[in-house]
Design a protein around this nucleic acid. Structure first.
Lengths: 141, 141
DNA sequence: TATTGTTATACTCTATAACTATA
DNA sequence: TATAGTTATAGAGTATAACAATA
């Protein structure tokens, strides 16, 4: 029992450390693109297609009012645009502009390349196992 | 070759998603304790013992000037204190106060318990493998 | 001269509460 | 009434540049 607890503690610690390493990598990748990590996240989420404010705030785990100001800043820089929702005049859809799409692709590519570089020390089998295990965790969360 | 690329992309995506899940969990655990995620991180780092401003800023990956204001706020709440460094009068050591230590323990316990709950669906063998793989990644980063 | 830490400043992120317009 | 989104406000996180004190 004590052994199990110790093992679990190691896993939790390893996950937290990994999170911080990835946060740093995310920040370092975003910055040279002129983006904060939060802005990069938002743009990458929109790679999946336009979203309403409420849905986007849910995905990003922030309040709608916080999102309003983020979208304001990105819209001023012509990276996203608010397009009216034809079926609900209260709502709008947030959409990547042409330059926003290009930047989102750059960010996504940057993250992927850096993370791949970070996992070079693993075998192909280890990478497959890791991806499968993490996907299971994310799916349950 | 195309297959390898696809597998790597899956791994990077799984790692990024896991990071966001953990960030949310970290924020949700910190908030009821009256802490921001950054403050919780700082307090937990200090569980390892007092640190100087430069060293602490390096560990947290923030500028020293950013750390100054964070420490100011935590010191006002009596969670940390600046103690003089006897061998270098320019420097100080940041130390947990009694209440800061208690709060850091609460935060650490909260993270660990929630993460353990998140990995309940895995077998003990999967958890061991995952911890070992993540530790390898962190060690190389 | 180099390093430790702070100050001044500006911007971004975030939440809460109150609000408008539409459903 | 309920929902979509905004505004107003306040506090926290962050970086850059310039600075004081000490090494």
């Amino acid at each position: 029992m004590a052994t199990t607890t110790a093992r679990d503690a190691d896993l939790a610690g390893a996950l937290v450390q990994t999170m911080h390493v990835l946060q740093d990598l995310y920040a370092e990748t975003s910055r040279p693109l002129g983006l904060t990590p939060q802005q990069a996240h938002l743009l990458c989420v929109l790679l999946g297609g336009p979203l309403g404010m409420t849905e986007l705030s849910r995905i990003l785990s922030i309040e709608r009012s916080s999102l309003t100001s983020m979208v304001d800043r990105l819209e001023r820089r012509d990276l996203v645009s608010r397009i009216p929702n034809p079926t609900d005049r209260r709502a709008c859809q947030i959409e990547l502009t042409k330059s926003g799409l290009a930047l989102a692709h750059d960010a996504h590519k940057g993250f992927t390349e850096r993370i791949d570089a970070m996992t070079t020390g693993l075998t192909a089998a280890d990478r497959r196992t890791l991806a499968a295990t993490l996907q299971k965790i994310v799916a349950e969360a």
